[in-house]
Design a protein around this nucleic acid. Structure first.
Lengths: 215, 215
DNA sequence: ACAATCATGTTTACGGTGTAAACACTGTCA
DNA sequence: TGACAGTGTTTACACCGTAAACATGATTGT
């Protein structure tokens, strides 16, 4: 019978859950140095396994990177999820505004706090379908994109946004916040101190909101 | 741009203007495959020179890439410049709106037409100072950032935007357009057909404008 | 219970890349 | 003319991604 030596870190030939371990290592590499720092050999090295072991679980480096990308998206989603559901406001209109603000604020904050991971989350590998795939959702099961969509629907439902302006509004919201994050982490606004970055973020959200709720 | 200096294909030991030739080759590589396609050895190969010749002109691959990045920015600037100065409107307010729209529209169009170059233009290497450096300006001597700034100043001058909202407005304008471009070329909106992308772009600009000119 | 098979990790090997060091050709200026 | 600085070449190395053959451990059919 399989005697349970119960020693967790098995020194055995087989690893147990190498795929997962490699993704974790990859996420760490991405956090430290962005997508180009996700080098296959280094990930295997950190896990303590030979380079080619990775090929039992990933077709190539690109596949590993894609898995790391999904993990990064999930981490971003979890952060946004938290902020979204923490909103407590008296009426529907205030709730809608707070929801949108929560998502935008946390989105940029995540990028500033984890620039490497954030960049890894947005490598060319995701279409609109993936933006709504559970792989990338937060604890609530909703992706950031779906949360923005929900917040904007609340804008219309609570009467602060004309329905005629609703179509595609999520693209303006997402674009402005995503663009700001990019400019802040490796664009021309990189040198901005954190406080200034936060202030600009609120201002950008203010203006986007004004764009939605204007008569 | 890509002005060919028409240097006679010298068969001599010395090349003549290797630095420039390498940047041109690098730009071509970037156009075809983005920043990661700017491979030093391939650039030298295309120019017909040994790999290490590049080190007489660039400290390392990173330096070559930075030069290519500047060239890409300049190309983007030239395109935007053209659209900006082509605007002809009767009054100041209409001119201001048209200027902003011209810059945004051309920015996104450039990204869609040259995704590889566009991504290369925004690798982590540029702070706010560089965004106003003549290295990256168009024929008029102004960078895209300075053109957005000018357009928004016209918004205030022509009375369609409250001065209280002016500070940092260029960051919303830039963010939303830059973010949209990113989402369109390798983000979740990648699969959108060109016509739809153009429509969304106009819509994003509409909403941003509404945000600026709201009471 | 035991051999066959499958899943997973290892070794060896190859071509491609960035880059350091030493060398070679060319034009310039004393 | 000859020293010298500038530019391109050769040789060499470490590292990367990855293919192929091999080894080991777990599973399963009989």
């Amino acid at each position: 019978m399989t005697v349970d030596t119960a020693a967790p870190p098995r020194e055995s030939y087989h690893h147990g859950d190498l795929r997962h371990a490699l993704v974790l290592a990859g996420v760490e590499l991405a956090r430290e140095g962005g997508p180009e720092a996700v080098v296959l050999r280094e990930a295997t090295r950190r896990v303590g396994v030979s380079p080619n072991a990775a090929y039992r679980h990933f077709a190539d480096r690109e596949a590993l990177l894609a898995a790391v990308c999904d993990a990064a998206q999930a981490e971003l989603a979890a952060a946004i999820d938290e902020s979204y559901w923490a909103v407590r406001e008296p009426d529907a209109a205030a709730t809608a505004r707070a929801h949108l603000r929560a998502v935008g604020t946390r989105y940029v904050a995540f990028a500033l706090d984890n620039p490497g991971l954030f960049r890894t989350a947005f490598i060319a590998s995701s279409d609109l379908e993936r933006a709504t795939s559970p792989e990338r959702a937060g604890p609530s099961g909703l992706t950031p994109f779906q949360l923005v969509t929900a917040a904007l629907d609340e804008f219309v439902a609570s009467g602060i946004m004309p329905a005629s302006r609703r179509p595609n509004a999520e693209f303006l919201a997402w674009s402005s916040v995503h663009g700001l994050a990019m400019l802040l982490i490796d664009g021309p606004l990189r040198a901005l101190p954190r406080a200034a970055a936060d202030a600009v973020t609120q201002q950008v959200i203010d203006m986007a909101e004004a764009g939605f709720t204007a008569p």
